[in-house]
Each structure stands twice: as structure tokens, then as C-alpha cells.
């Protein structure tokens, strides 16, 4: 599915040049579950941006199903994101003025899904994450765990190939953390997704079948066959 070769990302901070990613080589297969770990500022988020088609690398290739994302125009990258990639963010990133259902619908807007179908699919997605009763609630009226479940529904409603999660439990307390991890895991299995997650949480990292650690822009991958 994903083939990363020599991915390098440079940022200039004043006169200094920062190597956020320094020649990353990584292969992610269909239906893989990869956890990315590492210290703050090590390049985790930058890698997620590259994989999620949010940004292009300074050098190297990111091949998704035979297409090199590094060479695509902004418009093409937008299309890739709208069709293939679902995001779950640390702070949920729901639109505060829209209801749960409308928030989920926003993911279907770029695909040109008709209003009626859009509503139905959004409602179904919310039911599947256990929020069938909360369609008309605003994010502010829901708990953190519920908000994150809305975000998961939003990420999955378009049936993407890849689910990217950036510290999905970072803003949640422990009980909710397990709840969200259960939902994510269930979705991964049900939808046959490729699931890539960045996390600080070592408990979660331990359970991961593949664990990538990024330090100073370099990656090391550890297969954890036992827990797969």
C-alpha cells in the first residue's frame, strides 16, 4: 500500500535548517496496523502529514497504491485526502457550530454525495460508533469521548483505505482512552483499513503489532509478532 523511500523534510527556522525527516524508508502493507512513537519534536507529526497527503516532502517518494504523492499537485492531493484518507485528531477538531450528524457529513461534501444520502450515511456512521442518540447534539454538548467518536465516524463515513490517528487519546482520561481504542480497533477490523496511529501512550504502543520509533528524523521499526 505505502512505499516510502528516502523521505526528507526540511524546515528553515530562521537561519537554521531543521531536518524534521531525514531519509525515511518505510513500507506499510494493506490492512496493517502501525503505531508511531517518539519524543516530541522528533518528526512523528511530520511523517503523519506526509502519509496523510497533507504536505509534500522536500525529497524522496511516498507511493500510495502506485501513485507518488510527492509529485502531485495541491488539487490532486486534496482529492486523495477526500477519497482515501480518514483523519482522527488529538483535539477532535469538530466544527463547534455544527451538530454531530452535520460534522460527519462534512467528510462527504467533497465527494459530491447528495444531501439525502449524506444524511443517512452520517447517521449510520454515528450509530456504528454508538452515538445513534446524539445526532443533533453540538460538540459542546458532548463529553470528550463522545466527541472523539463523532470524529471517528467522520473519518470512516467515506470508507477510506487509510485511517490516520494523531494522538487520538491524548486529550482523554483513562476510561475514555480504552473506550476509544476499542472503537478504533473494532473499526480497523470491520473496515479492513490500514491504520496508522501516532501516540505517546506506551501502554498502547506495547500492544501494537508494528512499532515505529522516530528520533531526530530517523526511523526504526520493530515487529511485535506476538501481539498481532
Amino acid at each position: 500500500m505505502y512505499e516510502l523511500r528516502g523521505v526528507t523534510k526540511l524546515y528553515s527556522r530562521g537561519k537554521e535548517t531543521v531536518h524534521a525527516l531525514d531519509g525515511i524508508d518505510l513500507t506499510i502493507g494493506d490492512g496493517d496496523r502501525l503505531v508511531i512513537q517518539g519524543p516530541t519534536g522528533g518528526g512523528k507529526s511530520t511523517l503523519l502529514q506526509m502519509i496523510g497527503a497533507l504536505d509534500r516532502p522536500t525529497a524522496g517518494e511516498i507511493v500510495l497504491d502506485g501513485v507518488d504523492l510527492a509529485k502531485l499537485s495541491e488539487a490532486k492531493l486534496t482529492k486523495v485526502r477526500s477519497e482515501n484518507i480518514g483523519f482522527v485528531f488529538q483535539s477532535f477538531n469538530l466544527i463547534p457550530t455544527l451538530t454531530a450528524q452535520e460534522n460527519v457529513e462534512t467528510a462527504l461534501v467533497p465527494l459530491g454525495v447528495k444531501t439525502k444520502e449524506r444524511r443517512q450515511r452520517a447517521a449510520d456512521a454515528l450509530v456504528s460508533v454508538g452515538l445513534g442518540e446524539r445526532l443533533g447534539h453540538l460538540p459542546g454538548e458532548m463529553s470528550g469521548g463522545q466527541q472523539q467518536r463523532v470524529a471517528i465516524a467522520r473519518a470512516l463515513v467515506k470508507q477510506p483505505k487509510v485511517l490516520l490517528a494523531d494522538e487520538p487519546t491524548g486529550n482523554l482520561d483513562e476510561s475514555m482512552r480504552d473506550e476509544i481504542m476499542d472503537v478504533l480497533e473494532r473499526m480497523w477490523k470491520e473496515h479492513g483499513l490500514t491504520f496508522i496511529m501516532v501516540t505517546h501512550d506506551s501502554a498502547i504502543a506495547k500492544k501494537a503489532p508494528r512499532l515505529a520509533t522516530i528520533r531526530k528524523g530517523k526511523i526504526t521499526v520493530k515487529e511485535n509478532a506476538g501481539s498481532k
Binding site: 496523510g52 486534496t78 485526502r81 483523519f87 466544527i95 462534512t106 467528510a107 467522520r154
Partner: peptide, 16 residues
């Protein structure tokens, strides 16, 4: 910023 960034991440075109 984050709201519009999110929409763009979801695949909303800049024009939209």
C-alpha cells in the same frame, strides 16, 4: 485556523 485546516484535511477544496 484549525477548523478550516480540518476541512481541508477532510478533502475540502480551498475554493470551497
Amino acid at each position: 485556523v484549525r477548523e478550516f485546516g480540518t476541512l481541508k484535511a477532510l478533502g475540502w477544496k480551498s475554493g470551497r
